[in-house]
Simulated assay, not measured.
Amino acid sequence: MYTKITGFIIALLVMVSCKSEKKDETDSWRTKKAAVENATHNQLLDVEKEQGWELLFDGETMDGWHLYNNPNADSVWEVVDGELHSNANNESLTAGDLVSDKSYSNYELLLEWKISGNGNSGIFINVQELPQVPTAWQSGPEYQILGADHMDYDVPEKRPGCLYVFLPQQNTVEVKQGEWNKTRIKQVDGKIEFYLNGVLTAEEDLSSPKWEQKIAETHFSKYPEFGKTTEGKIALQYWYFETWFRNIKIREL
């Protein structure tokens, strides 16, 4: 009798163990790792469409973008595996910043980026694409993007997420080197907010006399179009190192 009962208990424990193992396997998709691996990029959810969001990058083409002041060039920018990539390894390609076809004034911009360790890039807003303005940075204020190994990483006014040269990070936040970082830029009637990985990093009123005074106190004062408007194109900076972008979306406000 004792042997039969013992055998039954052992068999029952084996069955329960097998069921538990099977459950662990079928539920593995619930883990964060699996969720990240199976995430869908460069697409809008139905709720985002209802809220007015539009994709600025479809993950397959360069539609909606062109090289600043050189739209027909064979540029360093390319689409690779659903990511917008700056190819820093082919010197035969035309270097330059990538600029949106459309201009924007009141909007919210979201995107994700990653960069090489010593890389330097940025997002320019209110860009005026004019023949007499050779580069996007000569008209558009910059949301700084910087790799953690860059020599300027600890310079307060050049930290990632800051309003380049003008303001240090309003709240301290580090870049996730080798991983995707999230940027949010909001502009309403010239008032801008910059966020890095969910943290507010800069605020400024680009329509105020104080902003004009700040420009006058920097080397940007040499460029007559810099920071003068609160409407313009969005540009992604190319600066000799690899940078990747994805999930670029905008909502006009």
Results as ranks from 00 to 15, higher is better:
residue 1 M to W: 10
residue 14 V to S: 08
residue 15 M to E: 11
residue 16 V to T: 12
residue 24 D to I: 13
residue 27 D to M: 15
residue 28 S to T: 13
residue 31 T to K: 09
residue 31 T to E: 09
residue 32 K to R: 15
residue 34 A to N: 15
residue 39 A to Q: 13
residue 40 T to M: 14
residue 41 H to G: 05
residue 44 L to Y: 01
residue 45 L to R: 13
residue 46 D to E: 14
residue 55 L to T: 05
residue 56 L to F: 07
residue 64 G to H: 05
residue 69 N to D: 10
residue 69 N to K: 11
residue 70 N to H: 09
residue 70 N to I: 10
residue 70 N to F: 10
residue 71 P to R: 08
residue 75 S to G: 11
residue 79 V to D: 05
residue 80 V to H: 12
residue 81 D to Q: 12
residue 84 L to T: 00
residue 85 H to G: 11
residue 87 N to Y: 10
residue 95 A to Q: 14
residue 100 S to N: 05
residue 101 D to H: 08
residue 102 K to G: 11
residue 106 N to Q: 01
residue 110 L to R: 14
residue 110 L to K: 13
residue 111 L to N: 01
residue 112 E to D: 03
residue 117 G to R: 15
residue 119 G to M: 05
residue 122 G to S: 01
residue 123 I to T: 00
residue 124 F to S: 11
residue 127 V to L: 06
residue 131 P to F: 06
residue 132 Q to L: 12
residue 133 V to K: 02
residue 134 P to G: 05
residue 140 G to E: 06
residue 140 G to H: 04
residue 143 Y to E: 02
residue 144 Q to C: 02
residue 149 D to F: 10
residue 150 H to E: 00
residue 152 D to S: 01
residue 152 D to Q: 03
residue 155 V to N: 01
residue 159 R to N: 06
residue 161 G to D: 00
residue 162 C to L: 03
residue 164 Y to G: 00
residue 165 V to I: 14
residue 168 P to F: 00
residue 173 V to T: 05
residue 174 E to Q: 08
residue 181 N to P: 01
residue 182 K to G: 08
residue 185 I to M: 03
residue 185 I to Y: 02
residue 188 V to G: 08
residue 191 K to V: 09
residue 192 I to H: 04
residue 199 V to C: 07
residue 199 V to F: 02
residue 200 L to N: 09
residue 205 D to E: 03
residue 207 S to Y: 12
residue 207 S to G: 15
residue 211 W to M: 12
residue 212 E to Q: 14
residue 212 E to C: 07
residue 219 H to K: 14
residue 220 F to Q: 08
residue 220 F to E: 02
residue 223 Y to T: 00
residue 224 P to A: 03
residue 226 F to I: 05
residue 227 G to Y: 02
residue 229 T to S: 10
residue 230 T to C: 08
residue 231 E to Q: 13
residue 231 E to F: 12
residue 233 K to D: 00
residue 236 L to P: 03
residue 237 Q to T: 00
residue 238 Y to N: 10
residue 245 F to S: 00
residue 246 R to H: 09
residue 250 I to L: 15
residue 250 I to T: 07
residue 251 R to F: 07
residue 252 E to D: 12
residue 253 L to E: 13
